[in-house]
Design a protein around this nucleic acid. Structure first.
Length: 259
DNA sequence: GAATACCTGAGC
DNA sequence: GCTCAGGTATTC
C-alpha cells in the first residue's frame, strides 16, 4: 500500500456504512482531510497511516477487509468507504463483505494507544525469544488460545496459530506450565519461520484474501493442518483432527503433536 | 475463560 | 436452508 499512499492528501471521505468509521464518520472524515500521509506502520493486524499533523488513520481489515486503490469504483459489492485525494489520482476503496474491519481516526499517540492499540501485546513478527517466553510465562491458558489472544502477542490469527503449533509439534490444548523452555523456544522459532514464509509467499488465500495489488497468496499450499481435518498428515500419516478451541476451528495431528 | 453476537458468502 | 468461516467486543 505504501507506494500508492505515501505523501498523498485525502480530501474527501464518503462512508456508506457508519459502523465501520470510528469514532464517527464525521470525525474520521474531518480528521484525515487536509493532512498528508507521512508514514505507514503496522502492529499486529492494525495498519497505521501517520498523518502530517501528527494524528493517525488506523485501518483494521478484520477478516475480509480490503483496500483497493483504483481510478474508478470497482464493480464489486460491499465497498463501504471511499477516500479521494488532492492529486485527483487513484481513490482508496475500502471493501469488507463481513464488516469486521474498521477505520479509525486518532488525534494523537495517546488516542491511538487508548483506542485501536489498547491492550495489544508486542508484534508477533520479530518478537525476541525472551519477550515471547515472558509473555507466556505463568499463563494458564491453552497454547492455541494464547496465540490467538492479541493481548499476549499481536498479529497471529487462526491459520498461523494452527500451522506454527504443528511445526513446533505442540498440542493446541497444551499449556505453557506443562512445557519446557526448549519446547516454548521451539514454538517461537517455528512461529517466526511460519510467518516469514507466509509473508514471502504473499499470505494464504482460502477464499477472499488478496494483497494490496489484488494478487492472491500461495502459502495455503504449504498448510499442513489448517482445514485439513480428516486428511493424512504429510509428516507422519496420522489423520488430522479438527476440534474447537476458544470458539475457533483448530486443526492438529495427533501423531506429530501428541495424543 | 467460555459462550455469544456481529456479518455475508461458499458449499452442500 | 443449513453449517461453517473468523477478529473482536461483550457478557456471564
Amino acid at each position: 500500500m505504501a507506494p500508492g499512499l505515501l505523501g498523498r492528501t485525502p480530501t474527501s471521505v464518503r462512508v456508506g456504512l457508519d459502523k465501520l468509521a470510528r469514532p464517527t464518520p464525521a470525525i474520521l472524515s474531518a480528521g484525515i482531510r487536509g493532512q498528508s500521509i507521512s508514514e505507514l506502520r503496522r502492529h499486529g493486524k492494525l495498519l497505521m497511516l501517520r498523518m502530517s499533523g501528527g494524528s493517525t488513520w488506523a485501518i483494521h481489515l478484520g477478516m475480509t477487509g480490503q483496500v483497493i486503490l483504483a481510478e474508478t469504483r470497482p464493480l464489486v459489492k460491499h465497498i463501504h468507504i471511499t477516500v479521494g485525494f488532492a492529486d485527483g489520482g487513484p481513490r482508496l476503496y475500502y471493501r469488507d463483505p463481513r464488516q469486521f474491519g474498521f477505520m479509525a481516526w486518532c488525534a494523537d499517540q495517546a488516542a491511538l494507544e487508548a483506542g485501536p492499540l489498547a491492550n495489544m501485546g508486542p508484534d508477533a513478527l520479530g518478537i525476541p525469544l525472551e519477550v515471547f517466553l515472558e509473555r507466556l510465562h505463568g499463563r494458564s491458558g491453552k497454547l492455541k488460545s494464547l496465540l490467538l489472544d492479541q493481548r499476549v502477542l499481536a498479529g497471529v490469527g487462526n491459520i498461523y496459530a494452527d500451522e506454527s503449533l504443528h511445526r513446533a509439534e505442540l498440542h493446541p490444548l497444551a499449556r505453557p506450565a506443562g512445557l519446557s523452555r526448549e519446547q516454548l523456544a521451539n514454538l517461537h522459532r517455528h512461529l517466526q519461520e511460519t510467518l516469514a514464509e507466509a509473508l514471502a509467499r504473499g499470505g494464504s488465500t482460502i477464499s477472499n484474501f488478496v494483497d494490496a495489488h489484488g494478487r492472491p497468496g500461495t502459502f495455503q499450499h504449504a498448510h499442513r493442518v489448517y482445514q485439513r481435518g480428516g486428511q493424512a498428515c504429510g509428516v507422519c500419516g496420522r489423520e488430522i483432527q479438527r476440534i474447537v478451541v476458544a470458539g475457533r476451528s483448530t486443526h492438529f495431528c495427533p501423531g506429530c503433536q501428541g495424543q
